[in-house]
Simulated scan of single mutants.
Amino acid sequence: MKNIFIAVLLISFGALHAQNFKAYQFYDKKGKTVKTDKLIKELAEYDIVFFGELHNNSIVHWLQLRVTEALYEKKNHQLTLGAEMLERDNQSQLNGYLNGRIDAKNLKDSVRLWNNYTTDYKPLVDFAKSKKLNFIATNIPRKYASQTAKEGIASLDQLSEKEKTYIAQLPIKVTLDTPGYQEMKAMMGEHAEGTKVMNFISAQAVKDATMAESILKNLQPGKTFIHYNGNYHSKEFGGIYWYIKQKNPNLKMVVISAFESEDPELKVPEKDYIPTEFNLIIPSDMTKTF
């Protein structure tokens, strides 16, 4: 009886360890799995790489750093970094940190950093600093996006010339033809007031257009620009991608989109899944950073 009990324990223990605990899986647009070495090789062929993220997902942030490190080597150091999480009017302070003129505390005191900056974005900034790479603060200052949401996009015309340098050149085209914006309108509900809906969408548009312009201004021949942004800003080839495409349709751009899944094998989701060139599937119960 004792031997039978031990045998059952061993079988159970073996079955437990035979489980495949997957932290992430990359797929291409056709649903085929992609190994990270092939991913890096292909990313190196593009002018712009959008790495869409779920802001609070730890594995996405870890992969952003690892992909950036590998791409830096593959591109023979020809890399520029940029992020939604840093705003245009803070570029000089960011440059001061990258160049060693100010320390991490001074940066924190002088720049509007996200609450999860230390855990999720500082490693990327520090990588750029250690390798002497440019890191571009691409986003519109949040007060102007907030102003647009409240007062409409026309209110930006009243800004000073200095303030206008922190946003994309006016006028900014806002259209529901942009992928994702129709979805935003639907999320607002059919009873939402038309003006409020368009103000909300316009606030998204000024962010996307400003980030697009920031990337275009900082592109350098032979260098790949990798941009970290919330998934929504590049999903379905909309947002930033769409605005860049309007300005320069000849640029080679690629999007990595992130999706959560409850499937332990991290198969391609059956619902709410519209793939881009590369698609990162991660467990829905992955540790969150906030």
Rank of each mutant, 00 (worst) to 15 (best):
286 M>H: 11
228 Y>P: 03
92 S>C: 05
183 E>H: 03
156 L>N: 00
19 Q>W: 06
132 K>V: 08
89 D>G: 06
87 E>C: 01
87 E>D: 02
9 L>C: 15
277 E>H: 11
186 A>I: 15
228 Y>R: 00
122 K>Y: 15
22 K>I: 15
232 Y>C: 06
269 P>M: 13
84 E>A: 02
259 F>M: 09
29 K>G: 14
36 T>M: 15
255 V>N: 10
274 I>G: 04
71 L>V: 08
114 W>R: 05
108 K>I: 03
215 I>C: 08
44 A>V: 02
228 Y>Q: 01
3 N>T: 13
103 D>P: 10
128 A>E: 00
230 G>H: 05
262 E>Q: 12
153 I>F: 11
195 T>S: 15
180 G>P: 14
180 G>E: 02
35 K>S: 04
192 A>C: 00
262 E>Y: 12
162 K>I: 07
186 A>Q: 14
138 T>W: 00
33 T>K: 15
38 K>S: 14
68 T>A: 04
196 K>Y: 10
216 L>D: 01
101 R>E: 14
253 M>Y: 01
184 M>Q: 10
98 L>G: 02
115 N>S: 15
230 G>Q: 05
70 A>D: 03
125 V>K: 03
227 H>Q: 12
81 L>G: 07
117 Y>V: 09
150 K>D: 13
240 I>E: 09
256 I>Q: 07
279 N>C: 06
219 L>N: 04
35 K>F: 01
152 G>M: 04
276 T>Q: 12
2 K>P: 00
114 W>A: 04
98 L>K: 02
268 V>W: 14
149 A>C: 10
114 W>G: 04
110 S>D: 14
220 Q>N: 09
185 K>C: 01
202 S>C: 10
84 E>T: 08
231 N>V: 03
12 S>F: 13
157 D>M: 07
113 L>Q: 09
43 L>P: 07
176 L>V: 02
119 T>N: 09
227 H>S: 03
136 I>G: 01
276 T>Y: 10
67 V>H: 09
16 L>D: 07
44 A>I: 01
269 P>L: 13
153 I>A: 09
11 I>W: 09
